[in-house]
Nucleic acid binder design. Sequence first.
RNA 1: CGGGGUGUAGUUCAUCGGUAGAACGCUCGGUUUGGGACCGAGAAGCAGGAGGUUCAAUUCCUCUCACCCCGACCA
Length: 402
Amino acid sequence: MKYSLTFPKTLKKAPSGAQSLNHQLLTKAGFIHQEMAGVYTYLPLGWKVLDKISDIVREEMNSIGGQELVMPALHPGEPWKKTGRFNSFDVLFKLKGAAGADLVLGPTHEEIIYPLLSEYIQSYKDLPLYLYQIQMKFRNEPRAKAGILRGREFLMKDLYSFHTSDDDRDAYYQKVREAYFKIFKRLELPVVKTKASGGTFSDLSEEFQTITPSGEDIVLVCKDCGSATNREITEDKKCLDCGGSLKEEKAIEVGNIFPLKRAYAEVFDLSFTDKDGQKKIVSAGCYGLGISRTMGAMVEVFHDDKGIIWPESVAPFQVHLVGLDGLGEKEYKLFLAEGIEPLFDDRLNLSAGEKFADADLIGIPYRVVVSKKTQDKLEVKKRSEKQTQFVSLQSLLEMLKS
RNA sequence: CGGGGUGUAGUUCAUCGGUAGAACGCUCGGUUUGGGACCGAGAAGCAGGAGGUUCAAUUCCUCUCACCCCGACCA
């Protein structure tokens, strides 16, 4: 992509409403635009990042048998009344249909997927089943805040698993936990698995928390064994696992996995006929991962005073090609031909300093400068490092493909 | 939802009773080109909205809306 054609360009100052770090940097760099409290447009660069995060999540969900579908964001009110959550789910967006029917904007999808499956699941042969989606969720937060960390509309992956027994559900739960670790490893985002309450879903759950000062959760991390517990469920000063001393850390919850209660399956009569001819209730689990929140958490963790420092796994482009002295077109075409994703700053009449400042702000992992000075070499600098080096195109390609 | 703060040009801010100003950005012309260049010219504003006080309101008062922060809440 040529930067001269990219919408929009960087801003020198973030709007005064952008207070949190992720909001400021993502806005200045042109990744997001706030529409109202907790609601954002994801601009082309921002959407590319969400897409890359989503792709990694998709691959790992698929690798544990997940099948992707998309359920509606607009829900009938009836199933929500059936579970009681029409009134008990305090951040539920409610609206009216044309004929006056109660409707709901989906904050989660048990009320859709259980009735759906109850139509299709008949036999133990239909199970287990793992279905997931990546979709905008809606929660009427009394106080949306911290940029895209806590929105009223946000992109989330939700996986639902359905089993013939709790044992099978528990075994799959372990697999999902492992898949989550793989996802965050590929995203290069450090997380600690944290014991937490299950809310209305289950007695206990496990959260994936990214430790950072801007987090709004407080987790107690054991200095000895590394196990962590959300402060919401313990007053203990000692680790439940090993007795070691605990340290309080602020953290952002980027994922949460629940072994579900049977309540929803019972309400919607999600049952199957087992081998013995008996009707049995399905055992389920649900597993969330905040895609847009993860993007925000990454900015909170990966930045310096000049801008964002994206991990290679999710950067909107692999290479930020800075053309000086009107050069760079040739290299841009070569990158494209080699399957490298370049963002080419082809703008004329702009000082080098301004282009460098933009490159630092946008945070693409490799900056490649082409100018009169570089001659037949390329000047390469990693965003995360200070030093530059002059290399041939060939060795740069090797660097990028390794 | 309680407490606090802020709404003025696209953006950041100034003016704080006498009818609007800068910087950045933008447009045009020219000079520049390795860390947010320079000169000149220009466009750009119902001062969030409604009401009130006043000869006069962006400025003071009331209400309202929006955003931000702290707290409560957070499947």
